[in-house]
C-alpha cells in the first residue's frame, strides 16, 4: 500500500441524519475517511454508533445527508439510483453478518446471481462461479442448498458471491458476528488471503477486537466521527 496513490475511498464531511417522527438522529457528523487501495480496514465502535450506516454509504446502499463520497474517482453521492445499482454490480462486493443467501437456490446459483447482471454467457458464468467457489474452498459443495451448509460454509458462499464479479472493494458487516471462534477464524483468514494475494481492498465492521487484529488498520467510530485510537 502506498500513501502516494490516491485513496480508493474518500469520504469528506459526511453527515447522516435519520428522522424518526419529529426527532432527528444525527448518526454521522462531518465524518472524513480515506481508504487506500489494498488496505484491510477494520471499523469498530459501540452498538448503534453508525458503523453499518457508514458502510452502507460507502457501498452506495444509502445516501449521505451532507458531504461527498468518492470511490475510485467517482462521486457516488451524486449519481442516480439506477446508475448506483449498476455501479454496485461492478465495483463492490457485500458480505453480510447473516450470510443472506437465497434459500431456494444452491450454492452455485447463489454465487452466480451477480453474474446475471453481466454480459457473460452461461459457460463463462459457470467458469467464474467455479473459480470463486474454489477460492473459498467449497468447490465440492456447489450443489448444496444453504440449509445443508454450516454457518461458516454459508458465509464462504457469501464471500464467493461477493468476489465472483472481481470487485475492487469488499464491504463486510460483521462477517464473523454469527460464527463460533473457529469458523470465524477461517473466514478472517480467507479475507486476509483475498486482501494479500488478490489485492482486494476490504472494509470490515466488527465488534470483536480479536477479529480486528487481522486488519491492516483499525478505526473507531465515536460520536459520529472516526478516531484511530481506541477510545477509553
Amino acid at each position: 500500500m502506498s500513501e502516494s496513490q490516491p485513496p480508493l475511498v474518500r469520504v469528506r464531511g459526511v453527515d447522516k441524519v435519520y428522522h424518526r417522527g419529529s426527532e432527528d438522529i444525527h448518526v454521522l457528523l462531518n465524518l472524513d475517511l480515506d481508504v487506500h487501495p489494498g488496505e484491510f480496514l477494520a471499523l469498530m465502535g459501540p452498538s448503534g454508533s453508525g458503523k453499518s450506516t457508514l458502510l452502507n454509504l460507502i457501498g452506495g446502499l444509502d445516501r449521505p445527508s451532507q458531504g461527498t463520497i468518492e470511490i475510485g474517482g467517482e462521486r457516488i453521492d451524486e449519481i442516480s439510483s439506477r446508475q448506483l445499482a449498476a455501479w454496485r454490480a461492478r465495483h463492490v462486493g457485500f458480505v453480510f453478518q447473516f450470510y443472506n443467501l437465497m434459500p431456494v437456490m444452491n450454492a452455485e446459483r447463489n454465487v452466480e446471481l451477480p453474474l446475471l447482471l453481466t454480459h457473460l454467457n452461461r459457460g463463462e458464468r459457470r467458469q467464474h462461479v467455479e473459480t470463486a467457489l474454489h477460492v473459498v474452498g467449497l468447490a465440492d459443495r456447489s450443489r448444496h442448498h444453504p440449509r445443508q451448509l454450516s454457518g461458516g460454509e454459508q458465509q464462504r458462499v457469501g464471500i464467493a458471491r461477493a468476489i465472483v464479479t472481481d470487485p475492487t472493494l469488499l464491504l463486510c458487516d460483521e462477517p464473523t458476528g454469527d460464527l463460533d471462534r473457529k469458523s470465524g477464524d477461517e473466514i478472517l483468514g480467507l479475507l486476509q488471503a483475498l486482501n494479500r494475494e488478490q489485492g482486494k481492498t476490504i472494509i470490515m465492521v466488527t465488534h470483536d477486537p480479536h477479529a480486528a487484529q487481522r486488519a491492516s488498520r483499525i478505526v473507531y467510530l465515536e460520536k459520529g466521527q472516526l478516531v484511530s485510537e481506541r477510545p477509553s
Partner: peptide, 15 residues
Amino acid sequence: TEEIGVLKALGFSNR
C-alpha cells in the same frame, strides 16, 4: 424483504 434488499445490494436495479 431482506432478499430483495440483498438483490439490490448486488446491483439489481429497482426496475
